[in-house]
Write a protein that binds this DNA or RNA. Structure first.
Lengths: 337, 337
DNA sequence: TTGTAGGCGTTATCAG
DNA sequence: CTGATAACGCCTACAA
């Protein structure tokens, strides 16, 4: 007993005294089998421990049931929450998720996509980075669907799901001003992804419209530690900001900790803070952060729904670009909520 | 253009003017192909966008390259960190991870395992729950390897990776006593998993040996909110504890927040706290939590390494149970670190 | 080194 | 409703 021996449909057929086809039909939803045959097959299958080989089925049907999830920083609160929701809904839709980690290096996403092709994934959902045009085209040409979440790319074919980052950021500016803040700042990472930049630009634009300047600082990667450094930089300025919009909740957490512990500032009395993502920690009472909630549920359901829908024959005018709304979650880090 | 049309080896062969076998060999490491042929094949493959079909390859080789990761609560800091490491190391080993979410309902793990069988996964790594004996046996019989992480189960066959929860918990008791604490408490969830219970028992046993009693409280699931409730319960006791070991960092975070904000206690002066897992938030300066680090890297590498090793022919005396050490990470939540 | 033939487990097709 | 047969795309002898 060394080799891998899964039981095949033939063995089930032999035991049940029917043909392979009968077995196949028994496990194909909506096929015509007599209740009697089905019962005998099921009994034999159970006894033998038979399970349909999805590798072979995928080969025949040209549909593997595999969906590739391509992402970096999968252990991050926001990412992991999104992945959780995606895998969950994919499962409920009868699909199975293949998770591929990318890093921020060049070609990382392309390699992942190639892996997706090798396993004949029905679709790939990209949460980080951006694939090269040629490889993306290859996916599309091969009949693989593509979903891009929060990545701005305008080549046709993939479904693009984005948030209204720009507008959302504008609403924060208004909230700050209403709270009596005048010295606005934006804390960003150096990642420079479209959604991050859209938040920055939206915030600056809205503030400008309100007649206020914004101090912008960018540092490192989008994490807790970077938030601390950003606080260091922004709070030591001569004109110390009285309101800071952090591009990300993780940045905000680091920023708040530094502001309180190194600068002895009280929030929101001396300093108002807002974040983005509504990660779980934002609701922890140490932070109690006012932030924007990513509509994770909806992002996932829209993606899964789109994947399940039939491919339009004639490049129909279906909207393949979704713009979802991020709701402001009022907590205690801005005065007068 | 509706159907899914991936390019096949035959097409590459036609274009390169060679046989299918030549193409196959070109993509099989260690096969004998002349550099000339290989070059022509590669050129054709690149031009056509050919990628080996791993579904078909798996069918032939009886080895899909797929490893199933079975877990619940995948968005939790500890879980997501472990998943990250596993997927990463699996990728580096040329495998690909299939992620299956389970919930805490009965049969959830069994369903996941059946999915693993359907996709002919080479192995399944279980991070949550416990499979039914019969389905686990079926996996093993089918040649699928099984790895259980932090789940106590004694049926032979799977690789079991556990921590020295019991001993580790004992070390915390000593640390508390050394810090001058006398009124010890243990905050646990009601999940009752073996590792959680081992921590509880280890802590109580060590405290008893030191001549101290332990107040044990259990509530809810292993999360932040439960930690707050546990604080509520433990800190309102007449004999208020001066040291609390929380079964999990997440519990500890909730506990600390409640202790500080609702009971105005300072840590570690009035209350010492310890946790377990060393999640990222434990190092955030709001918590600065003394805790045990899960050797995530090693857990993953041991699992992957074991999966890569050949199956012993004769039920050889290979150790299929690993007991890894959790190191105490000293931070500021216990006096006198 | 190369090509040919057969088979992996499944489903789709088509008689019966 | 059932059973035989031909694919699906690939790999592994085997012979050239």
């Amino acid at each position: 007993m060394v080799a891998k021996v899964f039981v095949s449909a033939q063995e089930v057929a032999d035991r049940a005294g029917v043909s392979r086809s009968a077995v196949s039909r028994t496990f194909t939803p909506g096929a015509s089998v007599s209740p009697e045959t089905r019962a005998r097959v099921m009994e034999a299958a159970d006894a033998l421990g038979y399970h349909v080989n999805h590798l072979a089925r995928g080969l025949m049907r040209n549909e593997s049931g595999i969906i590739c999830l391509i992402a970096s920083d999968v252990a991050t609160p926001y990412r992991s929450a999104l992945l959780r929701e995606l895998t969950l809904q994919l499962q409920q839709g009868g699909k199975v998720a293949m998770l591929i980690n990318t890093d921020r290096s060049d070609g990382s996403v392309d390699r992942a996509l190639r892996q997706a092709i090798r396993y004949r994934a029905d679709a790939s959902i990209i949460l980080s980075g951006l694939p090269d045009k040629s490889i993306a085209q290859l996916c599309l040409r091969s009949g693989q669907r593509l979903v891009l979440i929060n990545r701005d790319d305008d080549q046709p074919g993939p479904l693009r799901i984005n948030l209204d980052d720009h507008e959302a950021a504008g609403r924060v500016a208004t909230a700050f001003v209403r709270a009596g803040c005048r010295r606005l700042a934006f804390a960003n990472s150096e990642a420079g992804t479209p959604s991050l930049m859209a938040r920055e630009e939206g915030f600056v634009a809205a503030a400008t419209a309100l007649g206020l300047a914004v101090t912008v600082e960018r540092f490192g990667w989008t994490g807790y530690e970077a938030g601390k450094v950003l606080a260091q930089r922004l709070l030591t300025r001569r004109e110390r900001p009285d309101a800071v919009f952090c591009a990300t909740d993780l940045l905000a957490c680091g920023f708040m900790d530094a502001a309180r512990q190194q600068f002895s500032l009280t929030i929101p009395d001396q300093l108002c803070i807002a974040g983005f993502d509504d990660i779980e920690q934002a609701s922890w009472s140490s932070y109690n952060l006012t932030t924007f909630s990513q509509p994770i549920r909806e992002i996932a359901s829209r993606a899964v729904e789109w994947l399940g829908a039939p491919i339009p024959e004639d490049h129909s005018p279906r909207r393949d670009s979704l713009r979802l709304k991020a709701d402001l979650v009022w907590r205690g880090s801005i005065r007068g909520g």
